[in-house]
Design a binder for these strands. Structure first.
Lengths: 201, 201, 201, 201
DNA sequence: CATGAATGAGTATTCATTCAT
DNA sequence: AATGAATGAATACTCATTCAT
């Protein structure tokens, strides 16, 4: 008996619910201290059912790390490296990134754990590293463009500055809390811009 | 009959050996996957003896995180916020910091774990946070000096840029591997300098 | 899908099996020398399953001490303090008690351990102490009745003699072995009766 | 170099100090929960020195149980089975015993532990059982004397009543606390006398 | 003899995974 | 598919005993 569309929908919803809670718990308590039992409870799903959706804990962790990246990726990559006005494009990009990094603290703390222990979370690390590579490459392209068009100083290697920039983003995410009153986030955009050697207008 | 000076020396050496190996293992495998047994083996010390030096695993972790900070602290704070030539002082400081961050990757990955899960490692986090505060305050003082003396642009709040800078340091430490051939480290110094809004000479 | 009635029955049986073996082992080897592993083996149940039924060793011990008391209680309290013929009622009661104490040696040795270390087994001790209080109070009531009706000498305070009696019961249980050929038990009934100051018929 | 008399004295004192504290700790916390380390601390003696006086924990426990019995024994046996007035002799004996049992609660709780687990503490149990045998035999002799001289009823077997009596003593020791205000102890003497079937004067 | 560090065997407890219902 | 009981491997920690100083 094939599953009805309704059932399929229902199962997708359950899977997402599990993943959502898994991200929260893994993020806050780490891999080992997040037990399947706790995830099940938080998701309002029976203990045994978690294994219906994810064959084991490692799989659950993997998807918690990787699946969400698919959603985030287009948001992070939403800028045009060939934009006429590289300067403005950079500014707009930085603004978006900082807003985004400020808002997805939970997930990014999970990412941090993976990056911080690349050997331990090898499979997840590779996925993130791949993404990081395409991400900063696209940024580097924009920077190179800006340098050619004379809007950015040329002294800095574009790849270096793109690495500096993504590191900066991860660094502030690591260092700053989620306190909403913490409005230092918005002040950081112009500082981030400095990394690309902007020429004064 | 109290312990002989020789014995005391011996014990100190053992304690340090344990701590040293604990940093390596905690850094690479995280808190839970680092077992006391592994630490003991790596230190060439019997299992039970670890408990002679640290009353439990939590305590061992705490000292692994905190004790080493005492050694690192003077190196990180080795700059003069009241230096005549703020610009040169900043450059020298950045250079030292980057070299240092490049060389103590293992320990800093451990620090990263603590910062990434502040609730889980509350006690350790507080200690690190305290240090971070004094660290960036001293940097901010240097920046303020530089702005007053006109060597740095005044558009950026010194505290903000000091936070941006320490975040940047942590971020590159997180993102870069320890491959010795990885000589991007040295290229990052001038990019870091940008964060403080240097006036072109 | 809730558990079937059959499963529930099965689990109750397992729980009882564990408790039964726990009583035997705790009684014979004491709290510390009775390991969960031994209890599991004796019960024919896997090691981990013991924790399905009792959240920890302390809990297992507690139930081993306290649950069985519920079964014993009605047997010990099976006499009528308001009986017309207090003398005969006392005799019948003593007879029952002595038979009972002779037959439940294992459990009572466990009780002895708790009473002997009231601070160590505080929670269990309180439960037993409560029972002891109601138990001897009911005996005291019977004695008082017997004194009023002139069947017992009045020189002895009923509460004192009830305490003397329960102490006597525990004492013989402590001093005598379970050797079946040990038929001193039956001879003790008339001696016990003396504690209540019976008037010669 | 032979030890000076002073040193020997000193060592005896230390040994006694250890034993004294061991009785207290074993009595209150049981065998397993009493660690050598705790005994050492309580005795004001170094951890290692305990092993100078007792070759292992079992030995320490053994002496804690057995040595003190030597001191107690003459006090318990201090009555004359051939006394002219058996009745008075019994009364005096009971009085002494009850006072003694009331005052040495700590040690007797230790004894209780041994008797309650005869298999576990086999060696100690045997010693105590031996003593018990001679103790109740002497009492039985006094009772027999009393029966022959007509001061006690003859219905009860002297051995049975002596066992009843020693059981009673252990039972009240087990059941009653050491609260000094607990003056039920003194009321128990006449009740105990009943066990021997006294003829009314 | 006195001291206390070194050792490792022993144990309670947790938890991912399996599987019967 | 859903449930939750059953299992046992893994691990922190304790403590008697040994032994070097």
């Amino acid at each position: 008996m094939p599953l009805s569309a309704n059932q399929i929908e229902n199962m997708k919803a359950k899977r997402n619910k599990i993943l959502e809670q898994a991200i929260i718990l893994f993020s806050e308590h780490g891999y080992n201290d997040t037990t399947i039992s706790k995830v099940a409870k938080a998701s309002g799903i029976s203990f045994g059912s978690v294994f219906t959706y994810f064959k084991n804990k490692e799989e659950l962790f993997h998807h918690a790390v990787v699946d969400h990246l698919q959603e985030l990726s287009p948001l992070l990559m939403d800028f045009n490296p060939d934009a006429q006005n590289s300067y403005k494009e950079l500014e707009a990009m930085i603004d978006k990134h900082i807003r985004l990094f400020a808002s997805v603290g939970t997930y990014l703390r999970l990412v941090t754990q993976v990056i911080g222990q690349p050997k331990r979370f090898e499979r997840q690390f590779k996925k993130l590293d791949q993404f990081h590579y395409t991400f900063r490459s696209k940024i580097a392209a924009l920077v190179e463009h800006g340098q050619r068009s004379g809007q950015l100083h040329s002294g800095i290697d574009p790849v270096t500055s793109s690495i500096a920039y993504t590191s900066f983003l991860m660094g502030i995410r690591l260092n700053l809390t989620d306190q909403p009153e913490n409005n230092i986030w918005s002040d950081l955009a112009p500082v981030a811009m400095q990394l690309f050697g902007p020429k004064l207008p």
